[in-house]
Design a protein around this nucleic acid. Structure first.
Length: 615
RNA sequence: GCCCCCAUCGUCUAGUGGCCUAGGAUAUCGCCCUCUCACGGCGAAGACCGGGGUUCGAGUCCCCGUGGGGGUACCA
């Protein structure tokens, strides 16, 4: 059933062409635009025209790319050969401005991958239950399906990463679908944040984003099909009432609902439905046992008596998640559903729906959740949980990706630092995904980030550093604009920083015209013995006037001063460092001086001398 | 309550019956390098949740506990 391009999933999708205007027409904004009305009615009212409308509109608009080309991948990598200081990579751009979801995605190089390995001759790694016509190889189709009810959570990001990694590795297709059927909680803003987060991580999708809400008609049709085939029933009962009765009788609520439905005389349900009486549609869970195989957990078995007759269509006519995913995953030809462990118990329900609907079942892979430092589910109280938070803290997307990949997975050898994403793609395999949930350890993240930072060419770091220096007071604009000089500076700082923030902080003494003096350092290197400090600095000033401004001569001169005054080099270097940087620590002093230049060095030294004299 | 999943140093993990006196990484501590801070090098300390089995032999297989997590919605 080579569903290379599912009929409705369209060869189109909503490509994020140029800009942020992400889809002003769907639920969230439609509601918002309504101006304060209650949520539900607005949505329902908007449905026929609204949803469908946007779908078609964008389909038309997207007509130019019926090729199925990836969204983010197509853009000629803005990153290479960027000449001007224009921010290309990390969305650094203007803070707060909605970023284009994929336009700025760093090219990941997987295209080379694709070219290099055609799926044809290879053994098909996907043991899908889906049988295909002999010879035809069906490529892996995976998806990431976040619901826009919050920002991109690190757990979600990891799930997305695994899917992406697998798709790239197996030459498959990575589909992005936004599950926005929870009208009350879904928001455009969140969708944007999620797309931005994915793009930031370099996880470009090949299709989508599709919006689940666009499929409601199809979902509804599926529910109706089940109803017609007697695999589902109409439930006219009041939820609260059912719950109460279920409690009284110690039964599952859904079984009570089923009893009531079954007790209805023939034809009555149809009549009442016809008459417009509101009711939900419930799936009738068959007797027996439901099994499915899971790539990480192996064979899973659930007794059907433990599975409720789930509602598949609400009384307002909107579909419920479990039905919507099944319908969508089928529609989009997803053949491996890799998602969080929290869906494990949803899976038998979905498997049952696949079977009832006559859809081929995909394979499943449930990856463990990510926990906080206390072993509890990662949540806000553990600090930053949104990938955007880490972006702000100056974590590099490369490092984040690397770190996330290592959470619940390992390459089977000692490698931990994957500088190139290609290496990660190469090493990744779903067989090595762990079952155990893991704790999100920010210390290790920062260590990894430090490693990436140290290895990254300074030139590539420039934009990010600039982004953080933009609002610095007393900044020397000329220096900031001097790319060559900034590169040298970043080169000195990157190895001693764990985050871009830290790096930018280290740059402060160099790019500011006014120094801020660390009290601790002043106390230690000046205040303790002002006359000595004064003497050393004075002498330095004299000597440096005539020293050739280069690494070796400077070192020679400064050590010479120390010898002359008969003290260790540190005794003259510390007061000097304090004078020229205001700090207790900095990159190697000779390099600092070279970078600062004679003029600024001497000026700062003079100012320092004055300060010392005033002590 | 019921169903399901999981369980090796603080943390990330290697380990698929003998190669384990349990390996690596991080974090911590010490030493070295050194003008400081980092980096780097060397070293220390640190774990098989408990109890039963199976086996000549168990971190590894089975059972029972315990602990943690997830689900149990007209949320996704």
């Amino acid at each position: 059933m080579a569903r290379e391009r599912p009929p409705g999933a369209p060869a189109v999708g909503r490509r994020q062409r140029g800009g942020p205007p992400l889809r002003r027409g769907f639920i969230g904004s439609a509601r918002g635009a309504g101006g304060g009305g209650s949520g539900l009615p607005a949505c329902c009212e908007g449905r026929p025209g609204g949803h469908g409308g946007t779908w078609h509109r964008s389909r038309d608009a997207g007509g130019r790319d019926g090729t199925g080309e990836g969204v983010g991948r197509r853009r000629p990598g803005p990153r290479r050969g960027r000449g001007s200081g224009r921010v290309a990579g990390e969305g650094g751009g203007v803070p707060g401005r909605p970023l284009r979801p994929s336009g700025h995605v760093r090219r990941t190089g997987h295209e080379g991958h694709r070219r290099g390995r055609r799926p044809q001759g290879r053994e098909e790694p996907l043991e899908s239950t889906t049988r295909r016509p002999e010879g035809a190889s069906v490529s892996l189709r995976v998806r990431f399906a976040p619901s826009p009810t919050g920002y991109l959570h690190v757990g979600g990001a990891r799930t997305a990463l695994f899917n992406w990694l697998l798709a790239r590795k197996e030459d498959g297709v990575f589909v992005l679908r936004v599950e926005d059927t929870d009208q009350a909680r879904s928001r455009d803003e969140h969708t944007e944040a999620i797309l931005h987060g994915l793009s930031w991580l370099g996880l470009d999708w090949d299709e989508g984003p599709y919006f689940q809400s666009d499929g409601v008609e199809r979902h509804r049709a599926a529910a109706l099909q089940l109803l017609e085939e007697g695999k589902a029933y109409r439930d006219f009962s009041d939820p609260d009432e059912i719950r109460a009765e279920a409690e009284r009788r110690q039964k599952h609520a859904s079984r009570v609902a089923r009893e009531r439905a079954d007790a209805l005389p023939d034809g009555e349900a149809e009549e009442r439905a016809e008459a417009g009486e509101p009711h939900a549609i419930r799936f009738r869970v068959p007797a027996g046992e439901t099994r499915f195989s899971d790539r990480v957990h192996g064979t899973m078995r659930f007794g059907n008596t433990d599975i409720d007759d789930l509602v598949i269509l609400r009384s307002d006519g909107t579909p419920i998640y479990n039905l919507a995913v099944v319908s969508d995953d089928h529609e989009m030809g997803i053949n491996l559903v890799l998602r969080g462990d929290d869906h494990l118990s949803n899976t038998p329900k979905q498997v049952l729906l696949y079977r009832a609907l006559g859809y081929p079942e995909p394979e499943f892979a449930h990856v463990p959740l990510i926990l906080g430092a206390d072993g509890k589910r990662l949540s806000k109280r553990h600090g930053a949980t949104a990938v955007g938070d880490y972006e702000e803290q100056g974590i590099l997307p490369e490092a984040m990706r690397n770190f996330l990949a290592l959470l619940g997975w390992n390459p089977g050898d000692d490698r931990e630092v994957f500088l190139e994403v290609e290496e990660l793609v190469e090493a990744f395999s779903s067989e090595r995904i762990l079952k155990k949930s893991s704790v999100f350890d920010t210390e290790k993240l920062e260590w990894l980030n430090g490693r990436h930072l140290a290895e990254m060419p300074a030139g590539e770091l420039l934009d990010r550093v600039h982004g953080r220096l933009r609002s610095v007071e007393h900044a020397d604009a000329a220096l900031l604009a001097d790319e060559a000089w900034m590169t040298r500076l970043v080169d000195l700082l990157k190895v001693r920083s764990r985050t871009v923030d830290e790096l930018a902080d280290g740059a402060l003494p160099f790019v500011r015209t006014e120094l801020v003096f660390e009290e601790k350092a002043v106390a230690k290197h000046w205040e303790k013995d002002p006359p000595a400090a004064e003497e050393r600095m004075k002498r330095l000033l004299e000597v440096l006037e005539d020293t050739e401004w280069a690494l070796d001569p400077l070192e020679e001169a400064i050590r010479g001063v120390a010898d002359e005054l008969d003290v260790g080099a540190g005794k003259v270097i510390h007061p000097l460092r304090l004078a020229v940087t205001g700090r207790q620590s900095s990159p190697g002093i000779f390099q600092v001086l070279v970078l600062l230049g004679r003029g600024r060095t001497l000026e700062r030294l003079r100012n320092g001398l004055e300060r010392v004299r005033a002590l």
